[in-house]
């Protein structure tokens, strides 16, 4: 068993697949740099990300997989999960070694694992599209921060860009310390140096930064949420199934 260490990027992972062939590796285990704990007894191979190699592997996969599968591949990569990285490496080798159509073999454990992980990431994407709550800042930008389980910002960018085409917005991932900023023309990645650590609680932007009307609308939304409930039909089990408790902190209507 060879141990491959890569830099955690998609290029790195695809380069690793290329290297497997070039080095004629047998069984391989792949781990990302941040999770690698050097061990004197085990030798490791450090993958050097190379666009050229990555592109060739990507193109090879595209010949064998349809668009949906390529998207699944990308989504499961965004899970940032160590086991999924390994599944993706093995999956790629399996697909490249076999004729097209192998992606339908759900009897293969890597095929199954990736399609299930892609589903999970997709669910998180959908939840973020639903649960993000913007606050309007004094300079007219709509701001929200999130801490998604997976790195879904790249997946939700288009949705928000199409929907909020006439307002500037920022969605910031506090966990991964980067965000998206839409300036009415294009979406850009941004990194902020928050002077104090930003609290993950919602409404964490200090009032001084907010538009004077912001308080009113978040209040009205809370009022609305309460008024639209029908107590005679109360069903908390169903409620929690729809909004798992870990998401409540995003939702202004769930704050006291």
């Amino acid at each position: 068993m060879e141990l491959y260490v890569f830099d955690g990027t998609l290029e790195g992972l695809l380069t690793a697949v290329f290297d497997c062939y070039q080095r004629k590796s047998g069984a391989v285990k792949i781990v990302s740099q941040e999770n690698f704990h050097p061990d004197v007894f085990q030798e490791s191979f450090t993958v050097v990300s190379a666009d050229e190699k990555a592109n060739r592997v990507w193109a090879g996969l595209r010949k064998k997989l349809d668009k949906d599968w390529m998207l699944r591949f990308y989504k499961s990569f965004l899970s940032e999960n160590q086991e999924t990285f390994h599944d993706l490496l093995e999956f790629s080798r399996y697909i490249l070694d076999n004729p097209a159509g192998a992606g339908e073999n759900f009897g293969n454990k890597h095929v199954l694992a990736i399609s299930q992980m892609a589903q999970k990431v997709h669910r998180e994407k959908h939840r973020m599209e639903a649960f993000i709550r913007f606050q309007q800042t004094a300079d007219g930008i709509f701001y929200a921060h999130i801490e998604p389980d997976f790195n879904v910002l790249p997946l939700i960018s288009d949705h928000f860009k199409n929907r909020y085409a006439d307002q500037k917005w920022i969605i910031y991932d506090l966990k991964r310390k980067y965000g998206l900023y839409f300036d009415l023309e294009k979406v850009e990645e941004v990194v902020f140096d928050f002077t104090t650590e930003m609290s993950p609680a919602l409404n964490a932007l200090p009032e001084t930064l907010l538009d004077p009307k912001e308080e009113l609308y978040s209040l009205l939304w809370k009022d609305y949420f309460r008024s639209t409930n029908i107590p005679a039909r109360k069903n908390m089990k169903l409620h929690i199934r729809h909004i798992p408790k870990r998401y409540w902190k995003y939702l202004s209507e769930k704050q006291a």
């Binding site: 959908h126 599209e129 639903a130 649960f131 199409n162 929907r163 909020y164 085409a165 006439d166 307002q167 949420f225 639209t228 409930n229 029908i230 107590p231 039909r233 109360k234 069903n235 908390m236 089990k237 169903l238 409620h239 199934r241 729809h242 909004i243 939702l251 209507e253």
Partner: peptide, 18 residues
């Protein structure tokens, strides 16, 4: 302008009656 309504809509929240 603002917004789109394509596809199958999003539930942004759920009442306590689900």
């Amino acid at each position: 302008g603002l917004g789109d309504s394509e596809g199958s809509g999003i539930c942004h929240s759920y009442t306590e009656d689900g």
